[in-house]
Simulated scan of single mutants.
Amino acid sequence: MSRQLITEVAGVLDAPVERVWPEIVRAIPRTELGEHVLAYQGGWWYRGEWSVTPVPEGTRLVHRVYNVGGNYWLVALANRLFIGFRERTRQSFAEGLAQIGNRLGCATRLA
């Protein structure tokens, strides 16, 4: 599968991976699940991947969006040249990060 990174956003939760990972698995629909990595394949071009890793402050959560539809310009045109896409992805990620932090009772911040 050919894939091209479109955008990436990350955040930190002040809780250990052992507490964060089950919340991520519950919160995000998925088509693939690995050890501390999950992916969602959506439509003809979109692949979202989420991963968690331990950091001194707790857990780092990373979300990456890939183009798996092939020709970048075809995908870009179908998505209005991705205008505003990164900002919407970052905003959505920040909201989800805060919700998970609220459920866990821990602080969160965008990286």
Rank of each mutant, 00 (worst) to 15 (best):
V52F: 00
I100M: 08
R3Q: 10
F82E: 01
I6Y: 00
V75E: 10
R60V: 08
G11P: 02
F93C: 03
G69M: 06
L77Q: 15
F93L: 08
G101D: 06
V17G: 09
V68T: 09
R109I: 10
A10C: 10
W45Q: 03
L33H: 09
V68E: 06
L97M: 09
V12A: 00
G96F: 14
R64Y: 11
A107K: 15
I6V: 03
Y66F: 14
T7Y: 03
R26T: 07
E32K: 14
E8T: 08
L74D: 13
Q4P: 01
R88M: 08
E18F: 04
Q41M: 08
Y72K: 06
E57Q: 08
N102P: 12
I83V: 15
V37Q: 06
A111Q: 15
I6P: 01
C106V: 14
G34K: 03
F85A: 13
G84I: 04
W21S: 05
R60A: 08
L61N: 09
E23M: 09
D14K: 13
P54M: 05
P22C: 03
P54L: 11
Y66P: 09
G43A: 05
A27Q: 14
A76N: 06
L104G: 07
A98P: 10
L74Q: 15
L61T: 07
W44D: 15
L33Y: 07
P22K: 02
G101V: 02
L33G: 00
G43M: 02
F85R: 08
Q99C: 12
L33A: 11
V62L: 02
R26N: 13
S51H: 01
Q4V: 06
R60W: 11
A15P: 00
